[in-house]
Design a protein around this nucleic acid. Structure first.
Lengths: 410, 410
DNA sequence: TGACTTTGTGCCGCTACTAAACAAACCCGG
DNA sequence: CCGGGTTTGTTTAGTAGCGGCACAAAGTCA
């Protein structure tokens, strides 16, 4: 089988030589299958720029590692001649990563497989007014329970935190919404919890909007974009993220894309940052409800604002408030377009609802206020993934495997 | 000499096997020598993460290609034991690239070697109110003359244009300062001129501020920075540039970092972009002179403003004007810091002069208006290179050689 | 049924490395 | 002046990963 003498050729007889080859192209190949861009080995050959022999060997090795599946039967592609391909897909029973998300109202844990597929979710939990160690301990414990129940192999863990995460220390800088102290060592605490729960693999933590952007880039509305800008309003505050060449741009200390304090209304509301008219306070749910003349109800500002946009857009006061917010959001986005020149923009939270309420108006404002209008033609889309922060946290944990499958799993 | 039989071993006998090896590490190695980060083969070994054998072979091949020089005599490093290293340096008589720069007052041509060393310069020429084909024809002709006079081999050409250059078409979008039409095909015209002058190698064109940033990153004040932000005021208007991981970030259509229209003074001057108080009109030489109560003299606004800052900073009206501009510049830089979170900022033109007039004030404003102050501690430095746009244009032309020396020269 | 098209595999060889031993060139301490 | 110790460079042998090529497999089309 092996030609030259192999001193280890005793136990496993077959596919042994293959397991030794393909180190270089292995990562890129897995990434292509992971993001759904390589449905067959033929496509893999073209995308990697290697020969069919190499692509075949690489795919065989990824299958041997339990990461992808190669269909036994070829599936006939409709309307094409030639030998039909065997379909490549992510292994359904392969390893998973633990994804955790903490937000103002509680937390969530999930197991996520390759391809961004959520395998299992722990039921959402109510708000916890507890310190980081308690919250992260609970969410990791929920994840550990999932792992026990499903019996799957875990290769890493990722946390989506509701604050900027400073690099390289991994501290939470502005956890406004939580009973957490500023400067909490979230990455360290999360890592400790993961270790204590005897979960295998490295642990990572990053800002939730950043991770949402990463997830949308790999599996959602951002697929194929080279320079992707995401902006999202949550319950409170605006977050931004930038994905460049498939990698998150966090800046030198993890604080990039803090876009909440762009000035979009010089005569606007005072902001806690000391300035006035910031994107943060001019395009959030509270501003919208106030301008529409509504009292904040019991169901949460974001939910209420979304419902209003969806159900009462005919109401003149709602419409006027929406248009005012759209104009300010457009001004902010145009500023970002002039600086970053992305090839796609994705909006989440209330911003997404504003986009869907009147896409033409938003696009017109952005185009009008971008220099030369040219880059104002940038596509502006809504988020498409459910739980995109959670999936993004999983991406973080998958990254070492995508970079070097043999090294991370071997 | 060669061990196994080599069918081609007839003409060149020696260094033949070496010329066939080192393809992968060749580019990175050349880049290290080019940027002055690999003074010896020992350092090269460490920086590349390869064995001494590989580093030695790679260096030998780069020398054989005529790109670098390995000192014959080892140079004794003071106070260190062990065998002394042979010094590596860029080949002084190696190939060059043609660098061209066009600006409002004229143009300039130069031959630039590896390491950003300007080998020969054609005398600057006065303003040319001519169309792109004429201007670029003249500057390329000046370069061709330099090539003839020096007899050096040319491996490419780069142009620094005084306007944004759209990707991927290579058209000039806002050539305000020239008698050029908007949308002029500068890259195509430049390429045609280079071809017509029978200059070898590919031709490139990009915005001058972008290229200045690239040059500062490789050979100037930006060396070692990972995320480098450059902002510069010229005779008119503000330009910005961002270097990420050693590569220029041009955005999806070459329009990134058009920072001139950030709002830095809500009650400020009206700007031709339709807004008011833009960085562009609030921190340019004209604004400075006006606020200092000076009449524009005959010597050019930028020169006059610089002289005033240098020689008359004691004058209260000059000082007040400078501080007003510094505050506005700081506001703009803080906005960029919040978005990009660079690890270094470099200023050119009038902005550089403002920085040098009162560095503490500028740094304080940036730190104060950056979120959490943390990233406000970013170092703000002045440009250090003469003719940095020209050197940057050369970098553009060198890039293919740095990426694949064998492919580009073979 | 056979020509054509496309996909996948086995085999050989090459290129760019690594590993390890050796050699060279400095220091220093006696 | 001579023999360790230390760092640098070279030589040789070996190897991982990929390309090239011939061939086999599995479909479509006329």
């Amino acid at each position: 089988m092996n030609g030259k003498a192999d001193p280890r050729a005793e136990g496993e007889v077959t596919t042994r030589t293959r397991l030794e080859r393909g180190r270089g192209a292995l990562g890129p190949a897995l990434e292509l299958v992971h993001t759904g861009r390589a449905p067959t080995r033929a496509v893999l050959t073209a995308e990697l720029g290697v020969t069919r022999a190499t692509a075949g060997a690489v795919a065989a090795e990824l299958e041997a590692l339990g990461l992808i599946r190669i269909d036994a039967k070829p599936s006939a592609a409709a309307g094409s001649q030639g030998r039909p391909s065997h379909r490549l897909s992510v292994a359904e029973d392969g390893p998973v990563v633990l994804a955790a998300q903490v937000h103002a109202d509680g937390f969530r844990a999930a197991l996520v497989g390759l391809g961004g597929r959520i395998v299992a979710t722990a039921p959402g939990c109510e708000t916890v007014d507890a310190d980081p160690a308690q919250v992260l301990g609970s969410v990791v414990e929920a994840g550990a329970r999932l792992l026990r129940d499903t019996g799957r192999r875990c290769v890493g863990a990722g946390l989506a935190a509701p604050s900027a995460v400073a690099e390289p220390e991994g501290t939470a800088l502005n956890p406004l919404h939580l009973a957490w102290p500023a400067g909490a060592q979230v990455r360290q605490i999360f890592t400790d919890c993961v270790r204590e729960a005897k979960i295998e693999g490295p642990a990572f933590a990053a800002n939730d909007v950043n991770l949402a952007a990463l997830a949308e880039h790999r599996h959602g509305a951002g697929r194929g974009a080279r320079d992707l800008l995401c902006v999202a309003t949550g319950h409170r505050g605006v977050g931004g993220a930038l994905v460049l060449d498939g990698r998150l741009h966090t800046g030198s200390s993890g604080l990039a894309l803090e876009v909440g304090h762009l000035t979009v209304n010089p005569e606007g509301r005072p902001c806690h940052c000391g300035s006035r008219g910031c994107l943060d306070v001019e395009t959030d749910p509270l501003a919208f409800l106030t301008e529409a003349g509504r009292e904040p109800g019991p169901e949460g500002l974001l939910v209420q604002a979304r419902a209003l946009l969806r159900d009462a857009y005919g109401d003149p006061s709602v419409r006027a408030a929406a248009e005012a917010l759209i104009d300010r959001l457009g001004l902010g986005l145009a500023g970002l377009v002039n600086i970053l020149n992305p090839d796609r923009i994705i909006l989440g939270g209330l911003h997404r609802a504003l986009l869907e309420a009147d896409p033409e108006r938003l696009r017109a404002v952005v185009a009008d206020r971008s220099l030369w209008g040219r880059s104002g033609g940038v596509p502006i889309l809504a988020c498409t993934l459910d739980h995109n922060s959670l999936v993004g946290a999983a991406e973080l944990a998958w990254q070492p495997v995508l970079d070097d499958p043999l090294g991370a799993l071997g």
